[in-house]
Structures are given as C-alpha cells and as structure tokens.
Design a protein around this nucleic acid. Structure first.
Lengths: 118, 118
DNA sequence: ATATTATTCAACCAATTGGTTTAGAATTTT
DNA sequence: AAAATTCTAAACCAATTGGTTGAATAATAT
C-alpha cells in the first residue's frame, strides 16, 4: 500500500461529485481544453475551472497550457490506489454474495421438494 | 454498471475522510459499538456519531441496536461499485506503467551497451 | 430509586464547498 | 488596433461539513 492518507482524502473527495466524474469521462478519449470540458456541464465556466483544480489537486488531471487553451489530460494512476483500497474488501463483499447464492440455492431446493413429491 | 450517480457521490464522499476510513478498518474484524469505534479517534463522541451516520447514508455501515449499545457492521457491497468504477481506468494506468517499464528496459539496455563493449 | 453508561439531539461555530457574477489578463483573429 | 476567445481572479453567497459543548433520552447496574 503506497497511498498515503492525504492522497486518498483528495482522490475520494475529487471523485465525490458527478460533475468531476463527467469531466473525467470526457478525458478518457484524450486531452481536452476547459471550454470543451465545460460544454456539457450546466454551470458557469469559472465553476468548471474550479472543478478542474480539484481534480488537479488529486493528481487525476494535469494541465498543459498552449496559447490561450489549457489542455487537460487524465492521469489514471490514482485510480490504481482507489482500486487497491476497494479490493481490500473484495473477500467481504463476495462472502455476502456467496451467502445470497447459498440462500437462493436453498430456496430452489425447497421449491423442488414442494413441487416434486406433491 | 449498477451504481447510480447519487450512490457514487455518497460512497466517495464517505470515503473522503480519514476518520471514516479508520472506522471502516475497525469494522473489518466484525461488529463494534460506537464507544469502541470512538476510542481511537481524537474527537468527541457526537463527532464520531455523525461520521457513522455518513457511512450509513452511503450504505457502508448498518446499525443494530441492542439495549443501549449501537452495533455497527460493515457492508462491503459499495466497495464493489468503487472497485468497478476504478477498474474502468485500469488499461489507462497500466499503459503508463508499461511505458515506464519500457523506459526502464531501454535504460538497462543502454547500460549493457555502455558496460559491455567498454 | 439512583447512578452510570451509551448514545442522540440541539445549538452553535469556523472552515470548506459549490455555485454565482463581474472584471481582468493573455492570446489569437480580423 | 480592435475584437473575440480562453481562461483566471476576486468578491460574494448559500449550503454543507466537521467539529464543539451541554442537555436529553434510554438502558443497565447498584
């Protein structure tokens, strides 16, 4: 586990807003400038600018200034930390699903018994 | 993808605070009541109570009241959504790591050339 | 019945968040 | 040189967050 506490704070915080997740999705297809990122979002330009700053703070986005355009690029590495964090709990959530499967299997078994000899 | 937008909002928000992640870690070893959860945290009891509510809102924790004790249990399912979300970007971050590996391999290759014929 | 324990509620506070608008700076276009 | 484009900065605002304290509630122990 490489991820320090403050980094996880900032990444999770960055991801906890749908506008920022929308920005991230847009950046999957490559670099985009702020105007392009702002287009589909129903908010003022400065608001988008602030969201991008939050993403930069979490190191999810880097900025390359070219003339008057600020091109944003997705940096996916922090997602590795998020994944790693979540995977800690895989056993726990699969355990639950297994229990649910067992329950369903049990119910189907009961169903057969009810139908079969009847 | 089952996770709706509001659910991701609340889960990421819940995870974006180290005190809440500490609570989650404590709950990995099983149910604990609020007093137990509060013990290692350097904040007042009501503050912890509020953090637990945030975790409940994100469905990361459920509460079972037994007498005057409120036992909290971890529900790991939302982590599946978090993992699923992060995994979307695996290709992207591995791409980067691959590039880094390539660079390292290249450097080692250069190193051999330098040493070898010398 | 009283005290203790476990927790919530309510009120309050400072800081942060997420948004706005207006203005300004920097870079292209005309 | 003037106009348009892209973005930041600053000031402001309402709502939320994360914390506090003090009082209230509920359950158990003495």
């Amino acid at each position: 586990m490489v991820s320090d506490v403050a980094q996880l704070d900032s990444v999770f915080h960055a991801l906890a807003h749908s506008a920022r997740r929308t920005i991230i999705q847009q950046l999957r297809s490559g670099e985009k400038n702020l105007s392009e990122l702002a287009a589909p979002l129903k908010m003022s330009f400065p608001a988008v600018s602030k969201h991008v700053r939050v993403l930069e703070a979490a190191r999810l986005v880097t900025r390359r200034v070219r003339g008057r355009s600020h091109f944003c690029q997705l940096r996916a590495e922090p997602f590795a930390e998020v994944s790693e964090y979540a995977e800690q709990f895989r056993q726990l959530w699969e355990q639950r699903f297994d229990a649910l499967e067992d329950l369903l299997a049990e119910m189907q078994h009961e169903e057969k018994k009810r139908k079969g000899p009847g």
